[in-house]
């Protein structure tokens, strides 16, 4: 008998995504609808009202996903319940519920952050185990202690800007285009990370919270005094400040909470300097590391399907009466 198949829908922010996952690793499809595709299939930009855009994408993307599988082969339907924009969440969540009711299959509402947190375990033979997870993206920066499936403790989080946001905003200060993260990373490759001394926000705070707002301001204050070819050094120095704080706090949190594995997920986890430094620091501290596959780091439905699969396996199903929740907590 084949392993259970989960269909997942993710609409927590800008993207409309659908994935079908069989077992822990057989990703039958993972589609993300971009704006351009929708406008093309509708022959131009449709005047939009609330969530109309997700709604417009939902039908075509579901139909496209269902070319990979028969509806009756779906064992469980899931959708992102939160956190995110309510008007966006509602569309995917209602579509998921509707499918579950129509197919008479169980429904699981998934926390977007749980999707990220579990994503480093995607494709493994066994279920996720006790670990310290760094979730780092444009919208989130947090340390989450994964005790067991569904049992997560928020260890620390940003008090102002997310790490990815700091990258984008510093790029903007430098006059670079949006999104600035990958551009800063590329410029940093040829720069000297020790050229400028930037503050390591909250490094000595004694807790596991982060702050990147002061770093952004420090760059702003430094900029007017710089002349000549400073961009690469500035990017390298800035990136080093962000990475050092993320890595040191993650390692310290893992030790404090006696987790032998550290994980990293979310869009910023694609940053090569972060990956390299985390692997080195973890190895020095005798910890194992699991890095999310870059394909799973941006908003996608595959990670939602994976989290739903784990919950389905353990009978941790959702309730059709539960509503989408823009502030949905996982801890």
């Amino acid at each position: 008998m084949s392993e259970p198949t989960v269909l997942a829908i993710e609409t927590s922010c800008d993207e409309t995504a659908v994935a079908v996952l069989q077992g822990r690793s057989r990703l039958l499809c993972s589609e993300v609808a971009s704006q351009i595709d929708v406008h093309r299939s509708y022959g131009g930009v449709v005047p939009e009202i609330a969530s109309r855009n997700h709604l417009a994408k939902m039908g075509p993307i579901l139909r496209s996903a269902l070319t990979h599988i028969q509806l009756r082969e779906v064992d469980c339907v899931s959708a992102t319940r939160g956190p995110g924009l309510l008007t966006s969440l509602l569309v995917g969540y209602a579509a998921g519920k509707g499918l579950a009711i129509g197919l008479d299959r169980p429904f699981v509402g998934i926390n977007h952050l749980e999707g990220h947190l579990l994503s480093p375990f995607f494709g493994e033979a066994a279920c996720p185990v006790q670990s310290m997870g760094l979730i780092v993206s444009g919208g989130h920066t947090m340390l989450m202690h994964l005790v067991d499936l569904g049992k997560y403790i928020l260890v620390g989080q940003t008090r102002d800007d997310a790490a990815g946001e700091a990258f984008d905003k510093v790029a903007r200060l430098l006059g670079l285009p949006y999104p600035g993260g990958p551009i800063i990373e590329r410029l940093a490759e040829s720069g000297d990370p020790d050229r400028y001394k930037f503050p390591r926000g909250m490094l000595a705070s004694g807790d596991f919270d982060f702050s990147f707002s002061g770093l952004k301001t420090a760059v702003r204050y430094l900029l007017p005094s710089l002349r000549g070819d400073f961009e690469a050094d500035l990017c390298a120095s800035f990136q080093a400040a962000v990475v050092e704080v993320l890595v040191r706090k993650t390692i310290k949190a893992a030790k404090t909470f006696k987790a032998s594995i550290v994980t990293v997920s979310g869009g910023v986890s694609c940053n090569q300097s972060l990956r390299k430094n985390l692997v080195e620091a973890a190895s020095k501290a005798g910890l194992a590391v699991k890095l999310a596959d870059p394909k799973l780091t941006t908003d996608n439905a595959a990670m939602i399907a994976f989290a739903a699969f784990e919950r389905y396996q353990r009978g941790m199903l959702g309730n059709l009466e539960d509503e989408a929740d823009p502030n949905f907590k996982i801890h």
Binding site: C13, D160, D161, G164, E165, D168, K169, R172, S213, R220
Partner: peptide
């Protein structure tokens, strides 16, 4: 950028009696 808009809202939320950790909603 960095002029204090989010800091202001942190104080505003606290003054309204919210106990929440106000973070930047940029993304």
């Amino acid at each position: 950028l960095g002029a204090g808009k989010t800091e202001f809202v942190k104080g505003l939320a606290e003054g309204l009696g919210s106990a929440a950790n106000v973070t930047s909603p940029t993304f």
